[in-house]
Design a protein around this nucleic acid. Structure first.
Lengths: 160, 160
DNA sequence: CGGCATGGTTGGTATTGCCAACCATGCCGG
DNA sequence: CCGGCATGGTTGGCAATACCAACCATGCCG
């Protein structure tokens, strides 16, 4: 069972490493890790406050404040839902979209040296394995051949 | 180049997922993610304040406060270094060691379902690949045979 | 012995996050 | 139709995390 423990170690270590990179990049644009995630989520869809809170595992009041500050910075906008007067829909303002783009590029650049150490086939295998680990795969046996990785269109900071 | 992007997505997604698990488990023991890391680091060695701060990428004043609160909870102890009166050495108190142990078990349990979806050979491959990604391997070609994974003795919350 | 560097602490501020309380809106059952 | 109840957000209060700048104490040298 040392194999599972080693995997845990590697996962946890990589988590801290990647989180560190994301925190650093976020900081360079005055974004906390959470704000960075919010921007990533809103990059390709609008969402309501509670939806974001639930998704990120935060209290709705926390999300409210987060949105407040980001809005004050002109990164996003609060809009009303015409079908339900209670819900507030949040979506990126132009400045927010631009920032999200820029941050994503930076993240890509920052992680490139890491992923660059793997050849395409290894990358494919890594993606397959991580997909299984993070519960986003059919129970089908993953990590098969070189093309076994499900192609998806998500970008780095996306979370859906 | 979509392969590297997919890998980035998978890495970032897994990072948030694992970080979420760690945050949850930490919270169950009234530990922030950072405190959890500190405990993990101190589990098998003592360290000075600046060393911890540098390692975790935090300001020394932040670390000072972190240590304060943990010490007030009886989790760790500040000691003087006999060779240099300026440095403060920090090490786990018995309660802290016990807590660290308990948290580590919980993390193991929490991640077991995830890693459990992989068979031993896949786990081995995952470890090799992650070791390459997180820059902790010789540039030698990793992800080789089933026994290619370097065996290390680290435990989950360790960071060294 | 007088600077200068190093290691920590302190004080001030902003952000993140929680909880409890609250307001507004929507949904029903009677 | 109207009085509860549920749902969605906001507000206020609090603690923890994190930064910076300023400071103290110790050590190191010239």
């Amino acid at each position: 069972m040392s194999a599972a423990d080693d995997a845990m170690d590697a996962l946890v270590r990589t988590t801290f490493e990647v989180a560190g990179v994301l925190t650093r990049i976020g900081g360079e644009h005055d974004l906390s890790l959470t704000q960075l995630r919010v921007l990533g989520i809103l990059r390709d869809r609008r969402a309501r406050i509670t939806e974001l809170a639930d998704y990120l595992g935060l209290d709705k009041s926390t999300m409210s404040g987060l949105i407040d500050r980001a809005q004050r910075r002109g990164l996003l906008t609060r809009g009303k839902n015409p079908y339900d007067g209670r819900v507030v829909e949040v979506y990126l303002a132009p400045a927010g979209l631009e920032l999200a783009q820029r941050v994503e590029d930076d993240i890509r650049r920052a992680l490139a040296p890491a992923t660059g150490r793997l050849d395409p086939e290894q990358l494919d295998r890594l993606v397959s394995l991580l997909n299984v680990v993070s519960a986003r795969s059919s129970p089908a046996h993953a990590a098969g051949g070189p093309t076994a990785a499900p192609r998806r269109s998500n970008r780095a900071t996306d979370d859906s």
